[in-house]
C-alpha cells in the first residue's frame, strides 16, 4: 500500500463486486526470480569471460546486456483508455471525467445538472469513491442509472475499472456519460479514462491558489467549473484571481462560474454539455 496516498490494489469493487484480474485467465505469471546462487565448493579450471550472453568481454564491463523498452509507464492504462475511447466513438457517447478535491460539490452539481436536463438527454453516471455507494444512491434518486466503483485503498479511477463499469451499465447510443472521479486533485490527473474532457471543479470555499498548488490537474482539464459562486458575497475569495491562476497553468482552459444552489451558470454548463454531445454524435463511427 502506498504510504503517501493510501493506494493499493486488490480492494477495488465495482457495484460491490470484485474487479476482474488484469492478466489473461489461464496464463500463469512467473513472479519469483530464478535462484542466482549455486553451491560453489570446487575450484574452476578455467575462467571463461566470453560465456555470458554478450559472448565477449571488455575490461570493466559485465556480461549484462541492455534491452530497450521505450514505453510509457502508463502505457497499460493508456491502452485500456484507448479501448474505452473507441467504444465511446462507436456509440456516439460523450464522456466526461469530473475531478476535484473532496467537498467541492461534484455530486450536488451532478444531481442538479441531471434534473435540469430533465430527461432530454440519455445519460449514465459512474461514481468513484474509496468506500460506500452513497453517491450512486443520490444519482439513482434522480432516475438516472448509476454504478458505484469503490476503489478500496485506491486514490483514483483507472481506465480498466471504467472499462468494466461501462459494460455493466449498458450505455445507450448517443448518450452522455458522467464519470465522477475520486475526490483528489493529485492522482487522477495522470490517468486517462478514455474521456473526451476532464472537467475540474473548484469551489469558492477553497483557496484561489489551488490551481497553482495542484497544477497537474488544472493543466489536464479542459474546463473548470468555479462552483458555489452564490457564497462569494460572504467570502474573502477573489474569483478573478482564481481564474487567472488556472490560466497560468493552462492558458487554454475554459471557465464557467456556477452555483448548483441558485442555478447561476447552469445554462452555460448545460449548453457546453449539449454541444459536446452533438459533436460526439456527429463523430460517431459504428
Amino acid at each position: 500500500m502506498c504510504t503517501t496516498c493510501g493506494c493499493g490494489s486488490g480492494q477495488t469493487l465495482i457495484g460491490g463486486h470484485q474487479l476482474k484480474p488484469r492478466s489473461k485467465p489461464g496464463v500463469p505469471v512467473q513472479y519469483r526470480a530464478p535462484a542466482t546462487k549455486t553451491a560453489h565448493d570446487h575450484i574452476h579450471e578455467a575462467m571463461d569471460f566470453g560465456a555470458g550472453p554478450a559472448g565477449a568481454h571488455a575490461p570493466g564491463l559485465s556480461q549484462a546486456r541492455m534491452v530497450r523498452i521505450e514505453r510509457d509507464i502508463l502505457s497499460k492504462n493508456d491502452a485500456y483508455a484507448g479501448e474505452n475511447r473507441s467504444y465511446f466513438i462507436r456509440h456516439g457517447i460523450f464522456a466526461l471525467n469530473l475531478v476535484s478535491s473532496p467537498g467541492s460539490g461534484k455530486t450536488t452539481l451532478l444531481v442538479k445538472s441531471i434534473n435540469a436536463l430533465n430527461g432530454g438527454l440519455p445519460l449514465a453516471v459512474i461514481e468513484g469513491d474509496q468506500q460506500t455507494d452513497n453517491d450512486a444512491a443520490r444519482i439513482r434518486a434522480t432516475g438516472a442509472p448509476a454504478l458505484q466503483i469503490n476503489t478500496g485503498k485506491g486514490c483514483h479511477l483507472d481506465a480498466h475499472m471504467v472499462g468494466q463499469a461501462i459494460h455493466q451499465l449498458h450505455l445507450q447510443d448517443d448518450s452522455l456519460l458522467l464519470i465522477e472521479n475520486v475526490g483528489n486533485l493529485v492522482c487522477p490527473a495522470g490517468f486517462d479514462l478514455g474521456e473526451a474532457h476532464k472537467v475540474a471543479i473548484l469551489s469558492v470555499t477553497e483557496g484561489e491558489d489551488k490551481p497553482l498548488k495542484y497544477p497537474d490537474m488544472f493543466r489536464a482539464a479542459d474546463l473548470m467549473l468555479l462552483n458555489k459562486c452564490d457564497l462569494l458575497p460572504y467570502l474573502d475569495f477573489d474569483a478573478a484571481l482564481a481564474e487567472e491562476n488556472a490560466r497560468r497553468v493552462n492558458p487554454q482552459i475554459q471557465i464557467i462560474r456556477i452555483s448548483a444552489t441558485t442555478g447561476e451558470g447552469m445554462e452555460a454548463w448545460l449548453k457546453w454539455i449539449r454541444g459536446g454531445c452533438r459533436k460526439a454524435i456527429a463523430a460517431k463511427r459504428p
Binding site: 555470458g52 550472453p53 559485465s62 556480461q63 549484462a64 546486456r65 541492455m66 534491452v67 530497450r68 523498452i69 521505450e70 514505453r71 510509457d72 509507464i73 502508463l74
Partner: peptide, 11 residues
Amino acid sequence: DAMRVKELEVE
C-alpha cells in the same frame, strides 16, 4: 512531461 521505461540491464 513524459514518464518512460527506457531500457533494462539484464543478464
